[in-house]
Amino acid sequence: MELFTNAVLLTLLAIVTVAIARQRSLFGVVILSGIYSFLMASVLIVLDAVDVAMTEASVGAGISTVILLATLHLTKSIEYPKPRNTLLPLFVSVFVGAALVWGTIDLPAFGTADAPIHRHTTPRYISDAQDHRIAPNIVTAVLADYRSFDTMGETAVIFTGGIGVVLLLKGRRRRRPGKTAGEGMS
């Protein structure tokens, strides 16, 4: 059953990816990327990563779709016409894809319990969590307890990113005071 679910989800993901690449209208691309995020959230649920799935569904499919649609409102919503010479881009993407696949050959097999990443600190996290000294949801325990400093940095990153976007979009526009009008609004 799990194999069947995975096969369906991954096939749909591949279809959506091809559709995004072939789509010229950026509005369609935004909607398709929202669908991609929902499919990805389903894949993450199958992988038992519910926390990540929740984030993917709310950020990837929810908020970023709305933000991207707002961006389309500010810019033009049609992609530039296809470049004539597709040979170089094709070569670059095939080369990079091949390099990535080649890189995965050395990785431990999917789902092996004795991969190095699962033997370093993870056993201690799990045994301590079972001793009930920390929050029973180990993901929360690792994020907010063991790696509290990292999460503080992450919060600061969100703060910095948000302030940056707000400054960029709301900062006083000194140059071209009249020219910005009518730039968007397609």
């Binding site: 707002a70 409102h73 500010l74 990113g161 948000g162 976007v165 009518g182």
Partner: peptide, 18 residues
């Protein structure tokens, strides 16, 4: 929550003033 809302407001206000 505040960052997401602030980003959303920033985008919407930019679209209105432009």
């Amino acid at each position: 929550a505040a960052t997401m809302t602030a980003i959303f407001y920033a985008f919407v206000d930019r679209g209105r003033s432009a």
